[in-house]
């Protein structure tokens, strides 16, 4: 019996085709083969003999089957003419056209996704706004310079209520609109397009995008703002970011801050991006001024909240190292197709 294994090796060495292989198979596994005959004898054996012979025969059968399969696979592989089928794989692939999102859209989506992951809702408001929501409701004094024609665009037409209209100068205009419709606690972000009366050059635009975040509740403080800002920027830049607050002034927040983030490029050591200070100024923030809550119809000193805003273009320019802000609205596909 043990010789079978040796014999089959020898026979297979001479096999050159699938037909040869079939003949070998019949010799070893065919009905008249030595192995089949022995297997048939099993039925006539005593249980003890069967117990001894059965597994042995089975093992030999499996061995033969496997050997034959291996030989078959090897024969098949060599039966192809690989050379004849050879293809120049360095030829360019037939491309599927896939479009490109505008880098601002990509940045906005990324920002939105981070805030959504922290349980913020997305709010929206009109781009043509009345004077009340853009300025009055945010506690801007009547003669504040931000209302000047040098800083803001104004429209020639008034609305149906005779209110003065302007293209919103910031997304903060949505704050009171939202608060009038909703009761705290809430946390929202307001992405959107804004307009300033600003002649354009490589770093100035009259049309750009902002992000506003507003969190209002019973117990919201500056430390919470720092935490959320830190979480956001660390996620956006994918590295640990620190927040630095500096005193500032906005009519609609009190206290007010400019906020800097530690430079993601040099990790705060100082480089050309942060002008060697280790910090990059990214936006303004503050605790919502109670005047604004009152104008929104909330009771004074009942809620606390923080608001912060920053420019999307600035973040996109930092992220992609873009040096001319005018490219965003250029409609130039050489620019768009890089993203």
């Amino acid at each position: 019996m043990e010789n079978i294994a040796k014999n089959i090796e020898k026979d297979l060495d001479e096999v050159r085709s699938l037909e040869d292989l079939e003949r070998v198979r019949i010799t070893y596994l065919g009905r008249k083969s030595f192995l089949s005959e022995n297997l048939r004898l099993l039925g006539k054996m005593t249980p003890e003999e069967r117990k001894e012979q059965g597994p042995k025969l089975q093992a030999i059968k499996e061995h033969i089957t496997r050997t034959l399969d291996e030989k078959k696979y090897a024969l098949e592989q060599t039966s192809f003419d690989w050379k004849k089928d050879a293809l120049d794989i360095s030829l360019p692939g037939k491309k599927s056209p896939i479009g490109h999102f505008h880098p601002i859209t990509q940045t906005i989506r990324e920002i939105e996704d981070i805030f959504i992951s922290m349980g913020f809702d997305i709010a929206d408001g009109p781009e043509i706004e009345n004077e009340f929501y853009n300025f009055d409701a945010l506690n801007f004094p009547k003669n504040h310079p931000a209302r000047d024609m040098q800083d803001a665009y104004w429209l020639s037409e008034k609305n149906e209520k005779g209110e003065k209209l302007l293209p919103r100068t910031h997304t903060s205009s949505v704050q009171v609109r939202y608060m009038q419709e909703n009761t705290p606690p809430f946390r929202i972000i307001i992405p959107g397009k804004i307009f300033r009366h600003e002649p354009t050059d490589a770093s100035h635009e009259h049309t750009f995008h902002q992000f506003e975040a507003l969190v209002v509740g019973d117990d919201v403080n500056v430390a919470h703002f720092k935490y959320i800002a830190q979480e956001f920027f660390s996620s956006f830049f994918d590295t640990a970011i620190e927040i630095r607050l500096r005193p500032s002034f906005f009519p609609f927040t009190e206290p007010s801050f400019e906020f800097d983030i530690s430079c993601a490029v040099c990790e705060g050591k100082g480089c050309s991006v942060c002008k060697r200070t280790g910090w990059i100024e990214v936006g303004g923030a503050g605790m919502v001024n109670q005047e604004v809550f009152v104008l929104a119809g909330y009771k004074e000193n009942f809620y606390r909240g923080f608001a912060w805003g920053f420019g999307v273009e600035r973040l996109a320019m930092m992220k992609y190292k873009i040096d001319d802000i005018r490219l965003f609205h250029s409609g130039d596909l050489r620019f768009i197709r890089q993203f």
Binding site: S96, P97, I98, G99, H100, F101, H102, I104, T105, E127, P167, K193, F195, T207, F328, H329, G331, L333, I336, R337
Partner: peptide, 14 residues
């Protein structure tokens, strides 16, 4: 869907 169909997104002034 549009980018998937090969369309590029642009932004123009209002």
């Amino acid at each position: 869907a549009l980018t998937g169909c090969g369309f590029d997104e642009i932004m123009t002034y209002s």
